[in-house]
């Protein structure tokens, strides 16, 4: 009997957290999976089992494909850009330069701001005529441009905001990792005649790989769950050019109240994220040196 007591103790300690996780994460996930095989209940018509019908609808839904495509473009642009920017910024503020503390704070500020505040700041930058960007354009005699209202630039504008917000956050992780690298590695390399770029490529970057994997997973998840900026800045427009997956799910679920279809869309989103996470863990993890 005695040997059970530590185990019971442990379970009891975990119980509150586990209960809330089950209630708000695990149960909804399973429930969503279940609902994705049912039709949406309407008025006096209860939900009925429809099998894969929702998924078939999805295949024929042009908006879904647009949202997925937008999201892929969005991910393909924001992830590498914010990671590269984060590394560059971290390398810079890791150097002994004057005002280093202030610079670090400045880079981290976007992360501390609430998403909605960020979106509003940038909404002002992008405003036609009197927004910051157009005022600068005006100095060069260029005409006003409706940044968020134009099909060509709306998604790009969202990408810029996201990179701006994420890079500072990722920089903190890189900065922490850089400070773990002993300075005498750099000295040893400099005696061997390695230049800065060579040293970065052969030593610093490989030693940062565990951080990069962590940041990459975060970046992918963030890229597919972004919805706040879209809601505040574009609401998916113009002409669905900025509709991302989660925003589309939000629209389907809470504007059109098509719960069943929203559930199946959510499952697709989950599957995409799960797949990416597996790839990262099982492929990249093996090629990374952990200290």
């Amino acid at each position: 009997m005695k040997s059970f007591r530590p185990a019971i103790h442990g379970w009891l300690l975990l119980l509150p957290a586990a209960a809330f996780l089950a209630l708000f994460t695990h149960y909804p996930a399973v429930a969503t999976f279940w609902h994705s095989f049912f039709s949406t209940p309407k008025g006096n018509r209860p939900a009925r089992f429809v099998g894969l019908m929702q998924y078939e609808t999805m295949l024929d839904d042009p908006i879904f494909w647009i949202a997925l495509g937008n999201n892929l473009v969005f991910a393909a642009a924001t992830i590498p850009l914010s990671i590269v920017l984060a590394i560059v910024m971290a390398l810079w503020v890791n150097e002994k330069i004057a005002g280093r503390g202030l610079l670090r704070l400045a880079y981290f500020t976007p992360t501390m701001l609430p998403m909605i505040a960020v979106a509003n700041i940038w909404l002002f930058f992008y405003t036609p005529d009197y927004g910051l960007l157009d005022q600068i354009r005006g100095l060069f005699g260029l005409p006003a441009w409706n940044w968020l209202g134009s099909r060509d630039t709306a998604l790009m504008c969202l990408i810029v905001v996201t990179v701006w917000k994420e890079a500072g956050f990722f920089m903190i992780f890189y900065l922490a990792a850089l400070q773990q690298i002993p300075p005498d590695l750099g000295e040893a390399a400099s005696i061997e005649g390695a230049g800065r770029w060579y040293f970065f490529r052969r030593v610093t970057f490989p030693l940062l790989m565990p951080t990069t994997l962590f940041v990459l997973i975060n970046a992918v998840i963030n890229a597919f769950r972004l919805v706040d900026h879209v809601v505040v800045m574009t609401r998916g427009g113009p002409d669905n050019t900025t509709s991302l997956l989660l925003f589309y799910i939000y629209e389907v679920g809470f504007k059109f109240w098509d719960i069943g279809y929203a559930a199946s869309l959510t499952m697709v989103l989950l599957a995409v994220l799960g797949l990416v996470a597996c790839l990262q863990f099982f492929y990249l993890d093996r090629r990374i040196h952990y200290q």
Binding site: P182, D184, L185, E187, A188, R202, V203, P206, L207, H289, Q291
Partner: peptide, 8 residues
């Protein structure tokens, strides 16, 4: 500290 490159 020897300053060896840990990943090599």
């Amino acid at each position: 500290s020897y300053a060896l490159f840990p990943h090599l």
